[in-house]
Write a protein that binds this DNA or RNA. Structure first.
Lengths: 195, 195
DNA sequence: TTATTTGTACCGACCGTTCTGTTTGATTAT
DNA sequence: ATAATCAAACAGAACGGTCGGTACAAATAA
């Protein structure tokens, strides 16, 4: 294995670039320039650009599942509902600071999901892992009677995340994350149990 | 103006290609080949690929606003709520037949929304026009007391559409529109007034 | 005639990838 | 300990192809 360039570091940098530029408009030359790699080293470490992307998706999924679990973990005085709510609102509030890049998985799904089977599978798997990580907190909020229990926790999680992604994409284009926040707030208000 | 190739026809074809392949992976050569145009004619009619895309967005917006209004128009025995519901379900059900291409506006927002200001503006405008076209039916459903009136019709429309887009993108990648349909159904059930 | 539109060759830039050759560092033989 | 060997890692030029866009002459329309 290389000394100067371990795969994880390069993937991390490449992932950040994919997040900002998408797949097709980011070239390997650019990745090499930023990471200080040469093409020889790149193609020794990765078999293709497509495979590089897939490995970047896996890294993103791993990191974010951890982040999700950390942010949703029970903490001081916050109920399951409140943690969920803050989790989504926070991701929207941070958008102006990250140039409205949105969510990498959603971007990749949109750009390549239907055109490239391997990539589509990897992105779908990442999405499923996010749902897996969020679902327990939704269930907890239902057991708390904070969230409506009329529907399965998994389905409700799917609804939360789909709405989040949709409003995120809108914000990416309009550069108005306030609208997205309103949308998420409306959804939460709606699924809340009436006390 | 050209005889063989009026702009609207070429735009229509190019739009279809953009829907299937996105922006960056569709070349002008390919557009010319499919439409039977030559590059000379193309660049005589359109000033750039970017401008071509923007005109395609305008065409898509126009066509779809009309389609939306037609589909949501009062018809035999269908309440406002039912028309809305069928409108969204139908767009999801049709996805397998259109290779899970999703919604052009959503795809473009995701691919170029934050990177290209002009395109982002055009896509946002198209989105707004969709919301404008749907909102009256949401309001009507509220007045019917089919939909919860606790929130503004416009905000509810934003919620419907964001959820629709998010679940559409998921379907594009997973090729499972049934999940998306469940998500939309859950949302509708939730916003329905309890009788 | 004059103005516009079209066909085609072509431009430089860039694409992902492969190639050849070199360096490296550990392993093995002496 | 030193030398020989070897595979992996690396550098980076070069490849064939495609990109969006242009030049310009031929064709057509006014």
């Amino acid at each position: 294995m290389n000394i100067k360039h371990n795969k994880e570091d390069v993937l991390k940098t490449g992932l950040g670039m994919f997040c900002n530029k998408g797949y097709n408009s980011l070239g390997i030359d650019e990745i090499c320039k930023v990471t200080g790699m040469t093409k020889g080293a790149f193609y020794n470490a990765f078999q293709s650009k497509e495979q590089f992307l897939i490995e970047a998706i896996l890294l993103y999924a791993k990191n974010n599942v951890n982040r999700i679990k950390a942010q949703l973990q029970p903490r001081k005085k916050l109920s399951a509902y409140e943690r969920l709510y803050q989790f989504y609102i926070n991701m929207l509030e941070v958008q102006p600071k990250v140039n409205f890049m949105g969510c990498f998985i959603n971007n990749i799904m949109s750009e390549l999901g239907s055109a490239n089977e391997k990539v589509g599978l990897a992105a779908t798997k990442a999405f499923d892992e996010f749902i897996d990580a969020i679902e327990p907190t939704v269930k907890e909020a239902q057991q708390n009677k904070e969230l409506n229990s009329k529907w399965k926790a998994r389905q409700m999680t799917e609804l939360f995340h789909a709405t989040f992604y949709g409003s995120l994409t809108r914000a990416k284009s309009s550069k108005d994350h306030q609208q997205s926040i309103k949308t998420i707030k409306l959804l939460f208000n709606n699924l809340k149990t009436t006390k």
